[in-house]
Design a protein around this nucleic acid. Structure first.
Lengths: 337, 337
DNA sequence: TCCAAATATGGGAACATTCCCGCAAATTGG
DNA sequence: CCAATTTGCGGGAATGTTCCCATATTTGGA
């Protein structure tokens, strides 16, 4: 299939030079006569020579590639974070290999294999909701390949992480609901295997405590983020003999689906039940009613994560700290509360 | 930074074998004693040996990687198409390198460089709205690297393409508006450098003709897809002495923004002005009013494109046809019309 | 004018792997 | 029981590049 690739040897032969000289001319080394360099560059252009990164990477042991593993592409969160990461990566001369784990542990493990085989210089990871064992990620640590977590982080690994203050965001969202006079606030939580679910739950609890609202265990439902199940849980909540007057959802897709279910039952948002989400997805301002939510600086998270990763790649082995960057959230109050 | 990588030579030495034998054992070659293979496999596992794809690719001239270049990540279209493409690619043993050109020609050119340097086995491309010169893509053809276009295709290159029937979708959308009694239907078109803009415009014109509605040049505005400008154009249309009673937008983000502008002026959708979009983005069903739009089988488009590409990679050079897969659209009628 | 230093180039190892070729030992068949 | 085949393994080239070391040429200062 492939025909012969133009190599530096072809250029060398044509110009009666050695491959060493051509290599030097091409990489912008000093100690090569301007005329020679000029000739090499011109011929390279003419033959449209492309440097073979495989060979270069093989010898330099550096691929200038970073891997990104994210659980899904359905919400606008990860695409946006990836844009941010790619931005700083490409500015630093890195290309990116993106894998999507589809929220399953096995795919995530497979993805890490791809990354290792491709000899990435470092990886950015946001784990799946299923991931409880981290051996596949610890391999990178062991091999000295930098790793940075963002959003969904691994607590038991001592590496840099970029997160938002989930506790605080959650606290403010729930406080807001209480200030609007809501007394029975339900929480549709994520799986507790994810640290963010736990933190958002804690923020929720703290807000209740702070405002002397009784905590009712029955009003907290942890679910697996499978959006189809929201219907069941929301209906369950609405069918309680003492139903909630507000629902704080762990993320925006959940909140949006919650609103749909409530509307379908003929109840009004926010009059009958207020709804608040988390993340400020692109959609959230456009739906009816517009969703009150906790905005995250998503693109900045991606940027920060990539920057942390590249810093780590450029540092000497051992010379880095497990910095945890915590970015601020912002409560966006809209019609749904 | 990097410490020594475990290679087949390490394994060979440890077991007093040659690297050839280890290679054979690892690649599942026949003619290697079961005991030997077992020993190799076990030691490889123990040392957590990872095959170096760089070296393998260098020698086999195949990277098992396909490149995907898309213009943007903002709408749900491209992420969804990528999911589809990745699905069939990874099933076929290919990983993907994704680049986003940010709707600028220069970035697209840079992206193709990355793809060439990374020796991808083939690329999937959807061009930017700016791309008028295709030399950077023709290089792939010249080098015998398969290329498949999807969505935003290049007309002057004779390669496989995956598109939807834009003309037909547009025709049906506009026919629907006419059937609902609309007489003055405006069209917010995309840049004519994109084939899809042209086709959607043609479908629009054809529908008018078919139903004997006069074509009014002033009701068609072509714009550069910069969403911030929608406001200007929609206001311009509404300020006309004989304003439109419907707006057919070239895509959903445009339609959604159009609705926002109309609502902000105190007009009602669809009572005063009906709006129809194109693509059925994830958001479109959730906004108020829910958007009538032409649904595309986005994931299937990605799948089809990847399949076409992989077929082409696996074929002998020269043995392929410039198939154009045209997928069907579906008109989704919602509240906005 | 001559030697040292700078400049310019070449040669070859190295990177990790595959794959072809060759050779020995083991197995088979008549 | 010996030739023929099969099985199992090793050696070494090749992939495209960088980089170190060596060598040749030019330059400059005393």
């Amino acid at each position: 299939m492939k025909r012969h690739q133009v190599t530096i040897i072809d250029i060398a032969k044509e110009l009666n030079l050695s491959k060493s000289t051509v290599s030097r001319a091409l990489t912008g080394h000093k100690s090569v006569k301007p005329d020679t360099r000029q000739a090499v560059l011109e011929l390279a252009e003419k033959l449209d020579y492309q440097r073979n990164m495989l060979a270069i990477s093989l010898i330099t042991k550096k691929t200038n590639t970073i891997g990104i593993i994210v659980p899904e592409f359905h919400s606008s969160y990860f695409p946006k974070a990836i844009i941010g990461a790619q931005e700083v990566a490409s500015k630093a001369g890195y290309s990116t290999v993106i894998c999507q784990s589809d929220e399953t542990y096995e795919t995530e493990v497979a993805n890490t294999r791809v990354m290792l085989a491709n000899q990435v210089d470092g990886i950015l990871v946001s784990i799946t909701k299923e991931t409880k064992n981290f051996d596949h990620l610890k391999i990178f640590q062991r091999k000295g390949i930098p790793i940075v977590f963002f959003n969904r982080v691994c607590d038991e690994m001592d590496v840099p992480k970029v997160i938002v203050d989930d506790y605080d965001g959650s606290f403010r969202a729930v406080s807001h609901l209480i200030e609007r006079g809501r007394k029975r606030i339900a929480h549709l939580a994520g799986p507790y295997s994810l640290k963010i679910s736990e933190k958002r739950l804690n923020g929720y609890k703290a807000a209740l405590r702070k405002h002397n609202v009784a905590f009712d265990e029955d009003l907290v439902i942890s679910y697996d983020l499978n959006i189809d199940k929201v219907k069941i849980y929301v209906n369950h909540l609405l069918n309680m003999e003492n139903p909630p007057d507000a629902i704080f959802a762990v993320n925006d897709p959940t909140a949006i689906e919650t609103i749909q279910v409530i509307k379908k039952r003929g109840l009004r948002v926010p009059e009958d039940i207020a709804v608040v989400g988390f993340s400020n997805d692109f959609v959230s301002g456009l739906i009816d009613p517009a969703l009150t939510t906790v905005a995250q600086p998503v693109k900045e998270i991606g940027q920060a994560a990539a920057q942390l990763l590249i810093d780590q790649i450029n540092r000497e082995v051992g010379d880095w700290k497990a910095i945890i960057r915590v970015l601020k959230t912002e409560l966006i109050i809209r019609k749904s509360s």
